[in-house]
Design a protein around this nucleic acid. Structure first.
Length: 862
RNA sequence: GCGGGUAUGGCGGAACUGGUAGACGCGUCAGACUCAAAAUCUGAUUUCGGCAACGGAGUGGGGGUUCGAUUCCCUCUACCCGCACCA
């Protein structure tokens, strides 16, 4: 171990500066400040009780932005809170018998303590906790307002039921037919649910994506696809019974290809379609088919994909353009009830799935689109005999009045005709469905509704809000404890005073996270969710930072919720997040023993280049996201205790660009630690030099370093603006190297050295603020960097008076020349041709052509 | 299947609007200090040939545009992510 004075004592200095910042109130908003505002927000954490490296990365990125923007003269809002409702609390209750509330609040306390030593510039005075009534009561009020505004409604619907968690899942929470948390096969059940009408904003949510120019393209594309707009038509097919009598009703289908209507050979309805249910009453085989579809549901969708099953209902449907023509109506497992009208028409010739279905059930194939210029007869024969659909653009054929039109024109013509016949209508369909917010859970915000046998669902009157969660609940049985509570749900109907029951469902936890960013603007107002003027002052969030896993759900819900709040007068804003950044995951190598069990990194040692654990060779797996199940986690607290917060932060920012995955390595954190100690030793040396001005007769070598210092200020600032934190770290290290290596004995050497160290302190401050403050103080400064400003660079010093430019012959580098900045082309050319290497390449011949790009390059074409 | 992304030394990664590829770091090797080790410092480190000067090749593969391509275009391959019967 080196002597103490050679090493930076991070334990002492980090605690010291954290106390200083707190006691000087460095991170609270400046009231009535003339400075422009800047709202930095990281996604608020779920209080699991344990800080992990993903948190460290997320909040470090945000802290860099907050500290940098503060130094650039902004008034910063950088708050913190807890996304505190959710299932893990109930799981803890089940597993350990702890009350979810107690467990959650203890976790919050613990995690707040774990955050403290990282030195984030967070304004804790604005802390919000979503599981407390002071927070969720506003959510209840807003929900009732949404209800009044028609933005919330109740409907019976098929839901994804997780049999393990005993709850309903949103479509987004079903992954490959399995519950996103439990991994259990999801079943289909019909329940009455509350919905928020996100589809009301579908078009606007889609269009406005264009304006989100500070969002990652990836996220914008994902949201675009999620909303899934498609143009098409709803078409009526009059139904005919098996005995050829008209049923007096028609089947509505949705199609994006009305141009191919003449190629129809069947219709298919969803197994969940009301018509299917009606027909099944007198048809046990159909009933059995429907039941089978319900069983397989979405659960084995991936496997079942190839297997398209249909059941001929016996009904037939009249072709809208030719009443003489009828097609069979099938019930089919692949038709989705909640998209379009839950029914389709099948055109096997021009849709691959329909083709597969037609071939399986012996249905005819009609060719109605042919490639331009192709022989129609020959193409028709080939298509109708084959089993490959033609889905490209082309010319309509065999289609009466549509013949000869291109696909797009035919779509328009078909829709016009349908509308004339009153058998259809052009429409826009979205993939996006309304947001089901009911959850059959205890640990969530109660939905403020009372169910009365005579009045139906009645909103809880304002005066009775909030509806608080009862604390005295038990978790000895599966399902929702609110259902079983002896008294809580039994209340009088607010409208007729009869005996009634409370809604026992609670909100999806995505509701809390859909408005917390607004609550932070005025977290202590009690009579409304937030002060409108304050919210309008701070919103939108200037820079939001979080994981890509929320690219669709949370971000889309928040965009909708902001619109909904605006419709109800709470705000005047559409987009909550002007800038979005999605960070990569923190990964680590995985290790497995011979018996396949996962091993912790701490258990692994490398002996003679072979990875071993307990004397046995082990398998080193690829790097994966840190997770408890794979045991490849590294505990942030341990890292901070060993190397300090600055080292942990620096490593998080080095090497990997923030949007990419970061590979955690011991060598990496040690590298960061070494750099900090080097900086520390430089600071000690610089502090020995008296403060002094840089002399006018500065030595040339020191002047070069001075230019490099100014260049680094500009470059690091630029990198931080653009989220190139890894590059900023590289430039700071580069500058540190230059300053450290400079010759201090020349005229002005000491002054430039001292200046260089002080600049390093200032530009490294957003990244590693503790050591930066310490260095700054060591240099005799009485101010603190947390309240300081970004150093100004002198534009005149950014560039050298002499530039080195490359000389190429035929595009290959043959040497460099140093010319005065601004030297003309002729000078450059002459200097280049004088290079021996160039002369050698030319071999006495005159160059055919010389290209000179001033201050960049000379290329000689031989 | 559809949509999006990525590919650069032993490794993570740099390279602004087409202009000196490999910044910065890690690792490795050699050396200094040391009784020794750690720490620290110095030097080397894309690759091939060569003692060297120097020369050849080189940014996943192939092709193109250009005086000049990691960067632009076409094409192929591999991997990663999202959606997945959306009619």
């Amino acid at each position: 171990m080196a002597s103490p004075e050679e090493r930076h004592n991070f334990r002492r200095t980090e605690a010291k500066w954290q106390e200083t910042w707190t006691s000087r109130n460095c991170f609270t908003v400046e009231p009535n400040s003339p400075k422009p505002k800047y709202y930095v927000l990281e996604m608020f954490p779920y209080p699991s009780g344990r800080l992990h490296m993903g948190h460290v990365r997320n909040y470090t990125l945000g802290d860099v932005v907050a500290r940098y923007k503060k130094a650039k003269g902004f008034n910063i809002l950088h708050p913190m809170g807890w996304d505190a409702f959710g299932l893990p609390a109930e799981n803890a209750a089940l597993e350990r018998g702890v009350h979810p509330g107690k467990w959650t609040r203890q976790n919050i306390k613990d995690m707040r303590e774990q955050f403290r030593p990282l030195g984030f510039s967070l304004d804790w005075s604005r802390e919000v906790t979503s599981c407390e009534p002071e927070y969720y009561k506003h959510e209840q009020k807003m929900f009732l307002d949404f209800l009044k505004a028609g933005l919330a409604y109740r409907k019976e619907s098929w839901v994804n039921w997780d049999p393990v968690e005993h709850t309903v899942l949103a479509n987004e929470q079903v992954i490959d037919g399995k519950g996103w948390r439990s991994g259990a096969d999801v079943e289909q059940r019909k329940l009455s649910q509350w919905f928020l009408k996100i589809t009301h904003c579908a078009e606007d949510l889609l269009k406005a994506i264009e304006g989100l120019d500070r969002w990652p393209d990836k996220v914008r594309v994902m949201q675009h696809n999620w909303i899934g707009r498609s143009e098409g038509a709803r078409v009526q097919w009059p139904l005919v019974n098996a005995d050829k009598t008209d049923r007096g009703e028609s089947l509505e289908v949705f199609t994006t290809r009305p141009d191919t209507l003449f190629g129809a050979s069947f219709c298919a309805i969803s197994a969940q379609h009301p018509l299917a249910a009606k027909l099944a009453e007198n048809n046990p085989d159909l009933a059995e088919f429907i039941a089978e579809c319900g069983r397989t549901g979405t659960s084995t969708a991936a496997i079942e994909m190839a297997e398209k099953k249909g059941f001929d209902t016996g009904l037939r449907a009249r072709h809208p353009f030719n009443p003489q023509r009828t097609v069979p109506v099938f019930a089919a497992n692949f038709v989705l009830m909640d998209y379009g009208s839950g029914a389709i028409f099948g055109c096997p010739g021009h849709d691959e799935r329909d083709m597969e279905f037609a071939r399986k059930y012996g249905l005819p194939v009609y060719c109605v689109v042919a490639p331009v210029g192709e022989d129609v007869k020959a193409f028709t024969d080939k298509l109708e005999a084959g089993s490959v659909a033609f889905t490209d653009d082309g010319v309509i054929v065999n289609s009466d009045f549509l013949n000869g039109l291109k696909v797009d024109a035919a779509k328009r013509a078909a829709i016009e005709k349908l509308e004339g016949l009153k058998l259809g209508k052009g429409t826009v369909q979205y993939r996006l469905r309304d947001w089901g917010v009911s959850r059959q859970r205890y640990w969530g915000c109660p939905i403020p509704i009372i169910h009365c046998a005579t009045c139906g669902p009645v909103p809880v009157p304002d005066k009775d809000l909030p509806v608080t969660l009862p604390e005295d609940v038990t978790f000895d049985k599966p399902g929702n404890p609110l259902e079983r509570h002896p008294t809580w749900k039994h209340v009088k109907c607010p409208s007729c005073n009869a005996e009634a029951v409370r809604e026992t469902d609670t909100f999806d936890t995505f509701v809390e996270s859909s408005w917390y960013f607004a609550r932070f603007c005025s977290p202590h107002v009690d009579d409304r969710p937030f002060d409108k003027a304050e919210a309008m002052k701070w919103l939108p969030v200037d820079q939001y930072i979080g994981g890509v896993e929320h690219a669709v759900l949370h971000l889309l819900y928040s965009r909708f919720y902001t619109r909904a709040m605006s419709e109800c007068g709470y705000l005047d804003l559409k987009e909550p997040f002007a800038g979005m950044f999605t960070q990569g995951m923190v990964c680590h190598e995985t290790y497995r023993a011979a018996d396949g069990t996962w091993l912790e990194p701490g258990a692994v040692e490398v002996v003679n280049g072979v990875a071993m654990a307990k004397g046995q060779p082990i398998t080193v797996g690829r790097s994966e996201k840190m997770s408890k199940s794979k045991k490849n986690t590294v505990d942030p607290q341990h890292i901070i205790e060993t190397y300090g917060a600055d080292a942990a932060r620096l490593f998080m920012l080095s090497d990997s660009p923030p949007e990419r995955d970061l590979e955690w390595t011991d060598a990496g954190i040690e590298g960061a630690w070494r750099f900090l100690n080097r900086l520390w030793r430089m600071a000690a040396a610089a502090s020995e030099i008296p403060a002094q001005d840089i002399p006018a007769d500065l030595d040339a070598s020191a002047a070069t370093v001075l230019r490099q210092i100014h260049r680094a200020i500009a470059a690091v600032g630029d990198d931080l603006e653009k989220f190139r934190f890894n590059s900023a770290v590289a430039r700071i290290r580069e500058l540190t190297n230059r300053v450290e290596d400079m010759d201090r004995s020349v005229t002005g050497g000491d002054a430039v050295f001292r200046f260089g160290v002080s600049i390093v302190a200032q530009i490294v401050n957003p990244l590693t603020p503790h050591i930066a403050e310490e260095v700054w103080e060591l240099l005799g400064n009485k101010t603190i960097l947390a309240q300081g400003s970004w150093p100004a660079h002198d534009p005149a010093l950014l560039e050298d008076s002499v530039v080195t430019i490359a000389v190429q012959v035929n595009g290959k580098l043959r040497g460099t020349i140093a010319v005065a900045k601004g030297a003309d082309a002729k000078t450059c050319e002459t200097a280049a041709l004088e290079l021996p290497a160039v002369a050698k390449q030319l071999d006495g011949k005159a160059p055919r052509k010389v290209i000179v790009v001033p201050e960049k390059i000379v290329n000689i074409v031989a």
